[in-house]
Design a binder for these strands. Structure first.
Length: 300
DNA sequence: GCGTCCAGGTCTACC
DNA sequence: GGTAGACCTGGACGC
């Protein structure tokens, strides 16, 4: 086992980031609640597959400890790749200064700054975030976990158990029937297969969607052009890509708006919810998600 | 064990 | 632009 050190930015809170949304429940991420550690199987650009277990000495630690298994030694290039991928997963390069200034004296949202919340765990690739988002649509969270677990099992195995997340090429190499039988995602199977085959063939390129210069409107257009990605799914993916000027309103968001914001009265239309978050400007999507996660994060 | 109902978001056809 | 119905899975429930 090798140990790496990952310096953290100021005000970075490891466990709050890990618990910031449900991705940590989905393989090839894994949680050890007792040890407060996050595991992740990484498929490095050179093909090497390793398992990383990330932990912090305490919540205000200035560096994370990363234990790497599945390999006896790492080259400088491989170490840099692991560091780069984990920094991306843990949203370490996000500057939340403006958000914290916006909500500094807000009676209901000041907890976000106090807790150091606002970073979202994401996947190393846009492809993986697309697949996982698709598997959250029109289903329960328990079902999402089951479907993603079955998808992850189609990836390359790692020493010690578990798999790397499969590449688009690996899923595209199957027939639709084979994929459907393995994943059991219902009508989503066809959408997943189309996504994988279009990326694998080179017709669709999604990794550049992390480019910060890509306007939200253009990114939204590209995402919604994909089969199976409607308003909610597109909003969710935009959030994971760091675009917070769109909402991702689902049933949980509607319930939170009704119960904790609007005095028990349901919104007449999603436009009413959109109007509520409008004053938060380019941060509105993140504020909406923080409203959903408040009880989980404050009690974590 | 079997049948029925239900939850979830998106797509398509239709008005 | 708005709406209805179909799409799937598996858990919950009643018998």
């Amino acid at each position: 086992m090798l140990t790496l050190t990952l310096p953290t930015p100021a005000k970075f809170r490891f466990w709050v980031t890990v618990r910031g949304h449900g991705w940590s429940d989905l393989p090839p991420f894994g949680l050890d609640m007792a040890a407060q550690s996050l595991s992740r199987v990484l498929h490095l650009p050179d093909g090497l597959i390793v398992r990383c277990v990330i932990s912090a000495a305490d919540e205000r630690a200035t560096a994370l400890e990363v234990q790497v298994t599945g390999v006896e030694r790492l080259s400088r290039t491989q170490t840099d790749a692991i560091t780069r991928m984990l920094r991306r997963c843990l949203d370490m390069d996000r500057d939340l200064t403006d958000l914290y200034a916006l909500i500094h004296n807000h009676p209901r949202l000041a907890w976000i700054e106090n807790l150091g919340a606002g970073r979202l765990l994401s996947s190393p690739t846009v492809w993986e975030d697309l697949v996982k988002t698709l598997m959250t649509t029109n289903t329960t969270w328990a079902m999402t976990i089951q479907m993603v677990t079955r998808i992850a099992a189609l990836g390359d195995p790692v020493a010690g158990g578990g798999h790397a997340f499969p590449t688009p090429q690996q899923l595209a190499a199957l027939s639709l029937d084979e994929l459907s039988g393995a994943v059991r995602a219902g009508y989503r199977n066809a959408y997943l297969y189309e996504l994988a085959t279009r990326i694998a063939s080179g017709e669709l390129e999604v990794e550049s969607w992390r480019d910060a210069d890509l306007p939200s409107a253009e990114l939204l257009r590209r995402i919604k052009a994909l089969k199976g990605f409607g308003d909610y799914a597109a909003g969710n993916l935009l959030r994971l890509l760091g675009h917070f000027d769109r909402l991702a309103t689902d049933t949980v968001c509607r319930a939170v708006y009704q119960e904790r914001i609007n005095g028990g009265i349901a919104a007449q239309h999603d436009r009413e919810i959109a109007a509520y978050y409008e004053p938060f400007g380019r941060w509105r999507g993140l504020v909406q998600w923080m409203d959903v996660m408040e009880l989980t994060l404050v009690s974590a």
